[in-house]
Computed example of a mutant assay.
Amino acid sequence: MRITQGAFSFLPDLDDTQITAQVEYCLQNGWAIGIEHTDDPHPRNTYWEMFGNPMFDLRDAKGVMMELEECRKAHPDAYIRINAFDATGGFETVRLSFIVNRPAEEPTLRLTRTDVRGRTMNYALSAAR
């Protein structure tokens, strides 16, 4: 099962040239870049681990790509995403977020439906490995 979170998630994985182009777009708009990783891609797990500090003053995509490569080396079997933050409104707002690394084998999520009183149904997501 392919995890679909963030922009471009229904497209084939971006290669490093395409990732660099997206990072350059973010930097041209003055957005800060942050790299995050996780081994739990559950849709409600919105707080992934930061890799390093957000790159607020960076103006060159090569710096982001070097940091991404370090993250890939440190966490080769994790999900890694790039977030672009815009602070022009006085607070950090995510403008773009996309996955740039996936494990070789992605986990499968199972949806379980339970019928309860009347017409009420409860749904639960669980990992099925």
Rank of each mutant, 00 (worst) to 15 (best):
A61P: 05
Q5E: 11
D86W: 01
P41C: 10
E92H: 04
E70K: 14
V23F: 04
V116W: 09
E70Q: 13
I3V: 15
G89E: 08
E70W: 03
D39S: 11
T4H: 13
A127T: 14
E49P: 00
L14N: 05
E69Q: 10
D15Q: 05
P12F: 06
I33G: 02
I99Q: 12
F56W: 14
N53C: 04
A21W: 01
R113I: 10
I33D: 00
N45G: 03
D15F: 06
G6M: 09
G30C: 02
Y47L: 09
V100E: 07
D60F: 04
R2L: 11
L27E: 01
L68K: 08
G63V: 03
G30E: 01
T88Q: 05
T38R: 04
A78Q: 08
W31S: 00
G52P: 06
P54R: 05
F98A: 10
T46F: 06
M1L: 09
R95L: 07
E92A: 15
A32P: 00
L27R: 03
L58E: 09
F10P: 00
L111F: 10
M55I: 02
A84L: 03
W31R: 02
L96I: 02
K62H: 10
S9H: 08
Y79A: 04
S97H: 01
S9Y: 03
I19M: 07
R110D: 10
D77P: 01
E70A: 14
T46L: 12
N101W: 00
E105T: 12
L109R: 12
H42W: 03
I19R: 07
Q22G: 02
L27W: 05
D16T: 04
R102Q: 07
A61G: 07
Y25G: 02
L96S: 08
A74C: 03
D40N: 15
D57I: 01
Y123T: 05
C26I: 00
T114G: 05
D16L: 06
I80V: 15
G63F: 02
A74H: 03
N45D: 04
Q18S: 09
A84S: 12
S97P: 01
G30N: 01
E49N: 12
P41G: 10
A87D: 09
R113V: 13
R117M: 14
G30I: 02
E24D: 11
F91L: 11
A104G: 08
V94A: 13
M50P: 05
G118E: 13
G52E: 10
I33Q: 00
K73R: 12
T93R: 13
D77I: 00
P103T: 03
T112I: 13
F51E: 05
E49D: 13
A7H: 11
E106D: 03
F51W: 14
T17W: 00
L111M: 14
E36W: 02
F8N: 12
E49Q: 10
P107H: 04
S97T: 09
P54N: 08
T17H: 04
A32M: 02
C71W: 03
T4E: 15
S9W: 03
R102S: 06
A124M: 08
Q18I: 02
T112N: 11
R117E: 15
T93E: 11
R113D: 10
E67I: 01
F51A: 11
A78D: 15
F85P: 00
A124V: 11
N29C: 04
L27P: 02
N122E: 11
K73H: 05
W48I: 04
